[in-house]
């Protein structure tokens, strides 16, 4: 799951997958703006088959929270 998430994030933000780690966030990835955030959410939903709640989407601003969110839905 972690590898999949890193790949999706790398694709959306157009960075090498090696640059995505547990400290990655909207503060550390320059390309992570509001539009890219929406793109990330859409990509995650499509690839993982999850429909995130509207209220939680704005809180998914770092790798740890995103991974925790995905695990809560899938595990």
């Amino acid at each position: 799951m972690e590898h999949k998430l890193k790949r999706i994030m790398a694709d959306v933000f157009d960075v090498p997958v090696e640059e995505i780690n547990e400290h990655s966030s909207a503060h550390t990835i320059t390309a992570w703006d509001s539009l890219k955030h929406i793109n990330l959410i859409l990509a995650l939903q499509k690839e993982l088959g999850i429909r995130f709640e509207d209220e939680e989407i704005p809180t998914m601003i770092n790798y740890h929270i995103i991974l925790s969110t995905i695990r809560a839905y899938l595990e």
Binding site: E56, H64, I65, L67, S68, T69, A72, Y73, E75
Partner: peptide, 9 residues
């Protein structure tokens, strides 16, 4: 899902 997520975060 919410309470599971909180525990993971």
């Amino acid at each position: 899902t919410t309470i599971k997520k909180f525990k993971l975060v």
